[in-house]
Write a protein that binds this DNA or RNA. Structure first.
Lengths: 325, 325
DNA sequence: CTGTTAGCGCCTTCAG
DNA sequence: CTGAAGGCGCTAACAG
């Protein structure tokens, strides 16, 4: 590793001068400076981030803690975050909280020991991680009091419900994966809020929900709203096994717009997150926090987009009273 | 940030003594040492990783460069790697090479500037990144001459082909996503190697392959082998749209065992990677490289597992000459 | 057993 | 315009 010193001795000046020249502090004559720069890239000089971190107290590294790296949303968030981060000169250290709050706390603690300048955490369901010392921004959902920023899960659910009632559905089944997830609760709350008083709704959770879906269709349910695409594809599988076809017999929707959702048959109507905007907001917030400022984005919520595909359509008689083309 | 010095002055000793006590170098009397330790955790002391990195020249950070964080395999690899890494005291910095070799080189360079001790790279298709200075291990496929370790893609393809010919299929279509991917080439080469001379094989690439799949089935193809689950679900969609059902009309297989593959209908027969073993090998190799040693795992290949589900079955007449239950 | 010194690579005064 | 000195937190080598 070639250091500032090597360059200095090569040229016959002091380390301080090299530092000044390389950082364009203007305190060095242009001729000397360019000679220094030339030698620097001849040697392939790279400033030592350890030294800078030590001196400045800032590592320019952010820690990203996710509940489960296996979560299909992780890639998108990680990608958007990593791109946004290095635009700002930050790198991202990843950690997996492996499904438990203990692991989550451990991960946070390890990251802090690593000297990260800030923490980005998507909390374990139902947990409220906190750090007294290191800035931390929480990406969860609006109903979490500690939430810093998030997609508008409630609004996404609301859009989906509006879409489905506009289609004329009056008997609906909602299936969630996990009742303790605040994100899913918000998604469902949003759905319910937009369903007219007369429409019948039932909510089911987890595998029970998946298995009972077909029964409910037999009993007249004409649309099934789920809180994730993975859940939806699962339900779809049970439905077709039971002899129902989507969307002719039942409409079906997901959430998150995973890669496979456009590829399955029928392509799934779902709700997409704007991860790029999310990433920008998150970084804005964390960098503000690091600098002790306040970000305008704290507490904001990012609109989700309804992605219309072919798994939803108007219900068949008798619940569909309006004619349709 | 409480430093070693603070503890030292609190207790009335020198920084060096505190360092010795905390690192159990034995040069400190047990009484003093425990007094020091006590004060240290009262104060919540954490060694500064920047200082240690500066002093030792080792950051204990590894850089992970992937072609596209959006790749559905990334989560699994990242997770396995991050878990294996922190068992060994390493953290992982992620970078996305965003689909281009230039970005890949940039990412590598940025990571090196960050002072990573080693680089883990899943190379951009067809590229051969190299670093003169920083240890680097390449995770690609056996046919890449720079490959350090990888799943046995060839062997996976071979298993799949054996499975399909054992079922009695004699007219087969192979669909790959991208011909320049060495991984996919190896997967396909493995498949072809195990197909008896008499069986008819055709290979198609990309969207063309997806769109022509149904035609080929009309012309007698009884099994379609793809190089990824995502491709498979896509093909499945086109097939059902054309009125064919899987596996009754055609058998269909994927690769990678994504989350949705078990959930779709029918559940997809596919090939799974043993990412945990992969991660262990990768870390073994990179740490060996960092220490200037040689790892026994270099050049090794990790067996893939055939995951039998319900998208494959024996072909219907006329190509199936043996009776089956 | 404990202290002192010095230096990792860099930058920021403060002098010259 | 350039140099010298000091220090970020830590540890190794060398005293005492």
């Amino acid at each position: 590793m070639v250091s500032i010193k090597k360059i200095a001795s090569d040229i016959g000046v002091t380390a301080a001068t090299v530092s000044n020249a390389l950082n364009g502090k203007g305190r060095v004559s242009e001729v000397l400076a360019s000679r220094i720069r030339a030698r620097a890239d001849e040697l392939g000089y790279r400033p030592s981030s350890a030294a800078i971190a030590l001196k400045s107290g800032r590592s320019h590294v952010l820690g990203l803690v996710m509940p489960d790296l296996t979560n299909p949303l992780f890639p998108h968030i990680a990608q958007a975050l990593s791109i946004a981060a290095d635009r700002l000169g930050f790198a991202i250290l990843i950690a997996d909280s492996r499904g438990s709050v203990e692991e989550q706390d451990l991960a946070i603690s390890r990251l802090i020991s690593r000297g990260v300048d800030g923490l980005l955490v998507v909390p374990q369901r139902g947990s409220s991680p906190a750090s007294p010392t290191t800035p931390m921004t929480i990406i969860n959902t609006a109903s979490d009091p500690n939430n810093s920023v998030s997609a508008d899960h409630w609004g996404g659910g609301a859009q989906m419900a509006r879409h489905i009632t506009a289609l004329g559905h009056k008997k609906i089944l909602i299936i969630g994966a996990d009742a303790v997830s605040e994100v899913q609760q918000d998604r469902i709350a949003g759905m319910k809020s937009q369903l007219p008083y007369e429409t019948k709704v039932e909510i089911l959770w987890g595998t029970a929900g998946i298995e009972q879906a077909a029964d409910h269709v037999s009993k007249g349910v004409s649309a099934i709203l789920t809180t994730s695409d993975l859940l939806a594809i699962n339900v779809h599988s049970h439905l077709t096994r039971a002899g129902f076809t989507v969307p002719d017999d039942v409409s079906l929707t997901g959430f998150d717009d995973m890669a496979f959702s456009a590829a399955m048959h029928p392509p799934l109507t779902t709700i997409a997150q704007d991860v790029d905007t999310l990433a920008d907001y998150v970084l804005d917030i964390i960098t503000a926090q690091i600098e002790g400022k306040a970000s305008p984005h704290v507490g904001q919520t990012i609109a989700m987009d309804l992605v219309l595909r072919h798994s939803t359509t108007a219900p068949r008689s008798p619940s569909n009273k309006e004619p349709h083309p």
